[in-house]
Simulated scan of single mutants.
Amino acid sequence: MVKKLSSYFSFTLPGNIWRMLASEHWLVAEIRDGQTRKANFAAVDIRSGRLQWDYLELPESWWVSGTTIQTDTLLVQLYPDPQQPQTKGIIAIDLPTGTIRWQQPQHSFLRLTEQGILAVQGTEGESIFQLLSLATGEVVSRIEPVQLDDFSSPAQPYLLLPTHYTQENTYFGSIVSFIHHKLGLQPQKAVDYAEFQQLISISYYIYEHKNLTNYLLILDKEGNVRLHERLASQLPGIGLDTFFIIHQYLIVVKDKKDLIAYEL
Rank of each mutant, 00 (worst) to 15 (best):
175 I>L: 12
165 Y>S: 02
261 A>H: 12
244 F>C: 12
189 K>L: 13
108 S>K: 04
112 L>G: 06
220 D>Q: 02
6 S>A: 11
143 I>M: 00
7 S>R: 09
47 R>C: 12
92 A>N: 10
71 T>K: 12
8 Y>E: 09
155 A>T: 06
174 S>D: 11
9 F>E: 01
234 Q>S: 08
182 K>C: 03
176 V>E: 15
136 T>W: 13
243 F>H: 03
102 W>L: 01
188 Q>H: 15
142 R>K: 11
77 Q>N: 04
204 Y>K: 09
188 Q>M: 13
160 L>Q: 15
204 Y>N: 06
251 I>H: 08
108 S>E: 02
120 V>Q: 08
101 R>H: 15
125 G>Y: 07
126 E>A: 09
19 R>W: 08
216 L>D: 09
18 W>K: 07
132 L>W: 00
196 F>T: 10
153 S>Q: 07
250 L>I: 11
247 H>S: 08
249 Y>M: 01
255 D>E: 15
128 I>Q: 13
95 L>Y: 06
121 Q>V: 04
165 Y>K: 03
20 M>C: 10
158 Y>G: 09
262 Y>T: 02
23 S>A: 07
175 I>T: 12
228 H>F: 15
212 L>G: 14
88 K>I: 02
6 S>R: 13
41 F>K: 05
213 T>E: 07
44 V>D: 04
120 V>C: 07
54 D>P: 12
94 D>N: 14
78 L>W: 12
246 I>L: 13
93 I>E: 08
177 S>I: 00
68 T>I: 04
227 L>A: 13
151 F>G: 07
243 F>Q: 12
162 P>N: 10
114 E>C: 02
250 L>D: 12
232 A>M: 12
173 G>R: 13
